[in-house]
Amino acid sequence: MASISDNWDRANNDDLGANWAEDLGGWSIAANALRQTTIADVYTKCRWVGTSLDSDNYEVEVDGLTSGLSRGYGAFGRGAVSAAITFYAFMGFGTDSYYLVEITAGVESIMATGGACPDTLTNPSVRCDGSAMSGYVAGVLNAGPVTDTSLTTGAVGHASYSTNGGSANQQDNFAAADLAAGAPAVFPPIPASRILKTAYSTLVRMFRVLLKYRKTTWRLEEHTLILSKVLLGLD
C-alpha cells in the first residue's frame, strides 16, 4: 500500500514542481494553496506524476472551496495519463452541490448527486474500488457507490471546473492512498479518542457475550439436572 500527498506549503510559483503535470489550465501555488487561474468554464486537471500508487484501487482527496455554482473543485482518479480531460471525480461546487462525475474528453456525466456544498473549505474525496466509484466528504459517504467500468486505470490529481483563483476559490492538501484489500480506506487518520472509544465498546461487547454464555451454560446445567431427575425417577 502506498500513499502520496502534497500540502502545497511552499513559495508562490507557477511551477508546481517535479511531481505535477498541468494537463490543462494554468495552475500555480499561491499563499500555500493551489489555484487554476487561466481557463474558465471547462474542466481542467493537474495530474500527479511523482511516485505511483501500488494499485488502481485508491482514494484521492483534496481540500477546497469555491464561491459559486460555476466553479468546481475536487479530486480525480483513473485519469488519462495525458492531456486528455478524462477521469472519475468527486466535485464540489460552492453554494450548489457535490457531484460524483465521469468526465470524458471534458464532457461531464453525473453518476450520483451528493449533498449541498458550502462555499467554505471542505474535503471531498473520490474512491475508486474495482468497478465501484463513490464520493466522500470528510470521510463520510456522500455519493455512490455506483458501478462503472469505463476507466480501469490511470492517474490521480486535482480537478477544477472553471478558474479556482483567489482566497475564495482554491484547492489545498492533496492526498491519495491505495485501499487496503477488502477494507475501506480511512481519511483522515483516526483520532486517539475514537480508538479508545472503539476499544472500550469492544470490551463491553465481549463482556456481554461472556455474560450471555454464562447464562446459557447455567440454563443448560439446570435442564440437565431436571432431565437426570426425570430419568432416575426422582422427580
Partner: peptide
C-alpha cells in the same frame, strides 16, 4: 432539487 440529502440520485447509464 438534488442537494437536499446525499445520494438522492444514483444513475447507471
Amino acid at each position: 432539487q438534488w442537494n437536499l440529502t446525499p445520494n438522492s440520485s444514483i444513475t447507471l447509464r
